[in-house]
Each structure stands twice: as structure tokens, then as C-alpha cells.
Amino acid sequence: MTLELAIAILVTVVGASTPILIAAMGELIVEKSGVLNLGVEGMMLVGAIAAFVVLFTTGNHYLAILVAAAAGVATSLIFGFLTLSLSANQTATGLALTIFGTGFSALAGQGYSARPVTLLGPLFPSELAAHPIWRVLFGYSALVYFSFALVFSVWWFLKKTRAGLILRAVGENDLSAHSIGYSVVGVRYMAVMFGGAMAGIAGACFPLLLTPQWAERMTAGRGWIAVALVVFASWKPFRLLAGAYLFGLVMTMELYAKASGGPLSVIPAELWAAMPYLATIAVLVLISLRRDASTNAPACLGKPFLPSN
């Protein structure tokens, strides 16, 4: 394998991993606050169609990203209102949100299929990324650098800031946090909205980074992989980064296996396509076999907050 091919693969892996990473970082914050939002896939699809429509009509990539984030927040607020204000079951509401997002994006996207847009180009001038080695560092779009910054920021926020400490406290023991005087519902709303914004941006990655057009269900289950990754990474940001790239690699291998026809194509294409999902299942099984894994889970994860008075 030549250096250039290796670099090309690496760059593709980074691209494929970015939406999963961004969505999973959002979900990590949500889960750290004690809320399980299974609607990531739905929020991503709403973000994807919002980004596509804005991009198609204005041609402005950055405006598309902002609108996608806003659309993600709006979708997450449906979830937030039902689960936080009305104490609805989080699992059921999250599943409903995904079904809603799938249907809504298909409806809103009618008439937009097979209409091309342009992808978001690299952030730095192409001279910087001329040499293949430099391409590894400077060859990506702004969204990729955003995802790197996001990993570090989330880690720093959780570990070093008072707001992050309060967020963890709310996810760990909502009743104690309430009795000390923190607004459990308020903190969780903020977390859910952040998760929505990140899912929206992750959705925007599909028309902006990967395939320059709109297709129904174009996120293809990546939202679910993001949810699984949070557990896989034991709610740790840098482990999440590693996990996201591992999945990105598996997905990219599928493309290369089809294209190159080499030894990799011995494995049928269908199996390659199923690989990320099989890997998700395998990882979750491995995690649940490891006994201490659950100790890092936020203790209030998925439980509605019901103060006694």
C-alpha cells in the first residue's frame, strides 16, 4: 500500500467518523446529566434536511450548519418537554423522536432528492495541504476541526469547570442535587438542548461532507451507533474519540473492499455493510460482560426526576 493510499484512507476515515463523533459527544453530555435520549438518529435527520435546504437555497455552508444546529435544538425540545417537564418515559419518548425525525425529514425533503449541492471544502488554503503528509493535518473542512475541539472542550468542561461538576452531580444523584439547591430540570434542559444542537450538526455533516445531495434516511443508523459508542466509551470523551474512529475505519474498509477488489473483497459486500452494526453489537456484549463498566454510568441515567415535595 502506498503512502498516498494510506493517507487517502485516513482522510476518508476522519470524514466518516466526524458525524458519529459529534453526535456522540452531544449524547455524552445528555447522559452525564442523567437523561437517556434515544432520539439522536431522528434529530440528525432533521439536522440533515435543514442543512440541505439552507445550502440548496442560499449556497452558504456555515449558515446551513447553524440552521441544522437550531433545528436539532428545536427537535430536542420536544423530547425535553415530554421527559423533563411531563416526566414521560425517556426510552419510549426517544424512540418516538427517532420515528418522528425520520418521517418529518422525509416529508420536508420531498422534491429535494437528486438535486446536487457542493460539499464544504477544506478550511485551510490548498497550498498548505499540497503535500500528502500535510494533508493529514490541514486537509479537512471546518466541521472536522470542530469535532476535535469538541472532544477537548467536553473533557475540559466535565473535568475542570464548576458547571461540569454540577452537571455530573445532577446525573449522579438528582435528589441530592435538588436538596443542595441546584435546578435539576434546568440543567437537564440545557444538556438535552446541547445534545440536540450536536445531533443537528452531525446530521449536517451528511450533505455537507459525505454525499452532496439529499436522500431519505441518509444518516443510515449512525445515530444509533453514536448512542452505543457513549456506552462503549464508558462516558469518557477521549475513549469516545477512539471508538468513533474505530467505527469510521470499519465503514471505510467497506468502501475500499468494494473498490479495490483485492483480498478484502473475499468477504461479501453485504457483510462489510453490516460490519459497523455487528461491531456495535459485539462491543455492547463485551461491555456488559465487563462487570465494573456499569459503575461509571451516571447513577440516575434514564430515571425521571420526581422530587418528593
Binding site: 464548576r162 461538576l165 454540577i166 455530573r168 452531580a169 449522579e172 444523584n173 435528589l175 441530592s176 442535587a177 436538596s179 443542595i180 441546584y182 459503575t295 461509571n296 451516571p298 447513577a299
Partner: peptide, 20 residues
């Protein structure tokens, strides 16, 4: 006690302080 089991002693005390 209204303590947070997964947090450290220091973090628990910081959460309960009125002043930052």
C-alpha cells in the same frame, strides 16, 4: 448524607458550598 458517590470528597464539598 446527601453525597454523590461517584464524585470525590473535594467535588462533593465544592457542590455544597454557597460561595464559589
Amino acid at each position: 448524607f446527601s453525597l454523590f458517590e461517584a464524585l470525590t470528597v473535594l467535588e462533593n464539598i465544592a457542590l455544597g458550598m454557597d460561595a464559589k
